[in-house]
Amino acid sequence: MNPITAERKEASLGSFVFRDRIMTILRYAVLICSSLATIFPFLWIVLCAFRDNTQIYTMPFALPDPLILANFPKVFKSANLFNTLLNSFLYASVTVAVVIVLAAMVAFFLSKFLKKQGWLFTYFIAGILIPVQAILIPLFVTTRDLGLINTMQGILIVYIATNLSFAIFVLTGFMRKGVPDEMIEATIIDGCGPIRCFFMVVLPLSQTGIATVATFVFLGVWNEFLFALILLTDPAIRTLNLSIFMLRGQYSSDQGLMSAGVLVLITPAILIYIFFQEKVVQGLTAGAVKG
């Protein structure tokens, strides 16, 4: 090769490498800045939850000195937090269990009994597109007229009904591909009825899809606010979400207390996210791309 061109090539390659390095540094700089901005509110909450008002007032950005733990017992007491924490767990777990059984049965029927999805599938899926505000008032009136307002059964049935569409959508898609027809045929030929077949074959084979739906529905109920606000006024059966909101009215000047409350509220969701990260991301983005 001609030495002059070789030299030129090296020089331009050098400038490319240089440009690449600058781009990489820039890229990381932007990513780190945006990540810091994203977690800043969390850091602030954690910082405040372990300080009292005086500390926050005088040295807003200082670390806790001394470390104050009193906010947590105080918030548990003033907002009846332990009770509402249990309520939220109860609502979320019961909704998940019932929705999964009901939706899996429908999904089994839609994916294996019918030739095509047909209108029944469309009918069930339509619920995903309906904004809650379009059904809020009749639901309030219906639960009231049934005597279910301010009861655990009332909020549960509403949570179950409003989560069915998404669960049916995901599970039908999953079963169509993930549960082989041959296996069902074999069990039926062996003399099993569809109900046994559902519990022995279909449910176990759908575990992955069920896990996605379970995380999505659990988080959805745990984070739900509007139905809880209008259907639950009795403090004893409130959700955690709602009782933390009540703090906003009564204790809004006590920053440490509010932070501790928020921290209690978000910890379970964060734990679920840490342990089931892929499931959570899959569930929430499947919910997003359903349109």
């Binding site: 509110p41 984070n223 979400n241 933390i244 928020v262 509220l265 978000i266 969701a269 964060i270």
Partner: peptide, 9 residues
């Protein structure tokens, strides 16, 4: 991370 949290929180 913020996506998984309650909007209320």
């Amino acid at each position: 991370l913020p996506v998984v949290l309650a909007p209320a929180a």
